[in-house]
């Protein structure tokens, strides 16, 4: 199914909130670029928010503003880790105070659906609101849900986003587990206002996507990409840039291949950061990261250990 992008925003090591163009992440930095959230979130409302909430809610509000949309019909968010900072705070106080005198705020904000909930509270939304916590496929499953929502509501406007945060503690644990050797862990948020029908605000389209769960190998990933191209009625020659988040060697005749995780870092919803990067590449706002110009179509490919693989085709519309 084709989704039209009508507005987007995000925070990543290569992009600050509201910034037009990508820039090279600071050397050695794994954290999202510092952003002035007070521009979009009232300080009184943001005072309880941890980093993930500021990144997620801030990105959502800017994406909706860019789409000229006051109230989306549905909010679908994805996160692999959830609100780690608040969870750590809550658990720390629980240990420190021997399970008495627990502060309510950290507990309330520690649940995985806090980003979706806060977006709804901010905008007074009472419609469909769902959060997917499906590891490395949390964002992809948001798209699956958006697709089913569009089948029932073809004229709907849906806000879809993925967000994950990195804390000093989680970084220590992840590095200890050595689950992404030779790669840097990262964090970020990417939110997109989507519709199934083209609107006057539509500027790009997710032409199609495919998800493959479970163990994958070179052949199955390449087959998944071939199936996606067939779905979209596109040829390999029509791909200009491949944003790759996999070790599998991918070669297309006219495409420049870039490892997107060197810019987003490794985290469960990194593909939402890759989609943000694809958008900047297509709009000519990623010259600091990618040489190729006049890009019409970007293929994003992601694999995540034994959890599976996904791919997405994004183009101008």
């Amino acid at each position: 199914m084709k989704f039209y992008i009508n507005g987007s925003a995000g925070v990543s090591p290569f992009l600050g909130l509201g910034e037009e163009a990508c820039s090279i992440p600071e050397e050695g930095s794994r954290f999202a670029r510092e952003s002035d959230y007070k521009q979009v979130i009232n300080p009184r409302q943001s005072r309880r928010m941890g980093k993930l909430l500021k990144m997620g809610v801030g990105s959502a509000l800017v994406a909706l503003k860019n789409a000229g949309l006051e109230k989306p019909d549905a909010v679908i968010t994805g996160t692999g880790y959830g609100c780690l900072q608040d969870t750590e705070k809550f658990l720390g106080v629980m240990v420190e105070n021997e399970e008495t005198l627990l502060n309510p705020t950290a507990f309330i904000l520690s649940t995985h659906n806090t980003v979706g909930g806060q977006i709804a509270l901010f905008m007074g939304l009472t419609g469909y609101n769902f959060t997917y916590v499906h590891g490395a496929f949390s964002f992809e499953n948001c798209l699956v849900d958006a697709q089913t929502f569009f089948h029932e509501n073809p004229k709907a406007q849906v806000l879809v986003g993925g967000s994950d945060e990195l804390t000093p503690t989680s970084l220590q644990v992840l590095e200890g587990l050595d689950c992404a050797p030779d790669q840097q862990f990262g964090e970020g948020a990417g939110f997109f206002s989507l519709s199934a029908e083209k609107t006057e605000k539509s500027y790009l389209a997710i032409e199609g996507y495919r998800v493959k769960f479970g163990t994958t190998n070179d052949e199955s990933v390449k087959q998944m990409i071939s199936d996606l191209l067939a779905d979209c009625d596109k040829k390999e020659e029509e791909i200009d840039v491949v944003l790759s988040g996999t070790d599998i060697e991918l070669a297309f005749p006219n495409a420049e291949t870039i490892d997107f995780k060197q810019y987003t870092g490794v985290y469960p919803t990194a593909i939402s950061g890759a989609l943000l990067l694809a958008e900047k590449v297509l709009l000519g706002k990623a010259s600091a990261l990618i040489d190729k110009k006049g890009v019409e179509r970007v293929l994003i490919v992601n694999t995540h250990s034994d959890e599976g693989a996904s791919c997405m085709l994004v183009g101008k519309c």
């Binding site: 009184r44 105070n97 005198l101 627990l102 309510p104 705020t105």
Partner: peptide, 17 residues
């Protein structure tokens, strides 16, 4: 100052602690 009900809970915990 504009505190709300969650702040009231936080104040209760603060005074007790």
């Amino acid at each position: 100052i504009g505190l709300d009900s969650i702040d009231a809970l936080e104040l209760i915990v603060l005074l007790e602690k």
